[in-house]
Amino acid sequence: MLIQSAFAAFRQTLSPPLRAILWKSLGLTLGLLVLVWFGLTRLIQWFQASHHISEQYPLLDTLAYFLAGFGLFVALAYVMPAVSILVAGFFLDDAAEIVERTDFPGEPAGRALPFGTAMLYAARFAGLTLLVNIGALIIFFVPVVGIAAFFAANAYLLSREYFEMAAARFRPLPEAAEMRREHAATTLAAGCLLAGMMVVPVLNLVTPLFGIALMVHVHKRLAGRLPAPAPTPRLR
């Protein structure tokens, strides 16, 4: 089921109906990453200037700039999951509606979440994801453990966020969360796929749109397996 959903999501991500949203998603993702990059570089420059590193230790200052450049790339990789969640929240309903309409034409379309609610939920979860990834970044240089922590944490967080946002178009958020817990193995496997994409340069930029399309398919397929609700008895 997951393989079929992944291929369908990839096809949708590059399809003409989603192409306009893809370019907007890429633009917003890159814009947010540039802002993060700018903020981190200013922070490094302030730290070096406030501690007079360049005046007292010129060689150390050069080394610090070199390490800062490498460190910024590493830091951006750990910030990327939070950025992805924010971008997904912004484009969720537009992208999900296209996927539902084109791949599930005979089924009822979902109901869009209020924009404020969707962004508040995405921002709250992006903040949690950022905190967790900062913790994972601290142990980055611990062999095996650092990478494993990054992958495991983001597989869970991305599976939770993307699935619940897709499912919330059809059911209240508490029910969406309960559905995710009931199908934890499937949703976590989808999260592993998204976490794997996060570590691949360029490919990670399309993760927000791909994640939406993927979880729309996963939710639809899981919902199709659920038993139909019992008919409501008529009053005589």
Results as ranks from 00 to 15, higher is better:
P16E: 13
P17M: 04
A20L: 15
L22E: 06
S25P: 07
G27W: 02
L30N: 04
L30T: 13
G39S: 04
G39F: 04
Q45S: 11
Q48S: 13
A49W: 07
H52L: 14
H52Q: 15
I53V: 15
E55C: 01
E55K: 09
Q56N: 12
L60I: 00
L60R: 03
T62L: 05
L63T: 06
F66Q: 00
L67F: 05
A68K: 07
A68S: 15
A68W: 02
G69W: 01
G69N: 04
F73L: 08
Y78N: 01
Y78A: 01
V79T: 03
P81A: 04
A82F: 03
A88M: 04
F91K: 07
L92F: 06
D93K: 05
D93H: 12
I98A: 04
V99H: 01
T102F: 00
D103R: 08
P105N: 03
P108E: 04
A109V: 14
G110H: 02
A112R: 02
L120V: 10
Y121G: 09
A123S: 00
R124V: 06
A126G: 03
L128A: 01
T129L: 00
L130D: 11
V132Q: 06
V132E: 00
I134R: 13
A136M: 07
L137V: 04
I138C: 09
F140E: 03
V144P: 11
G146C: 06
G146S: 10
A148R: 10
A152T: 14
L157C: 07
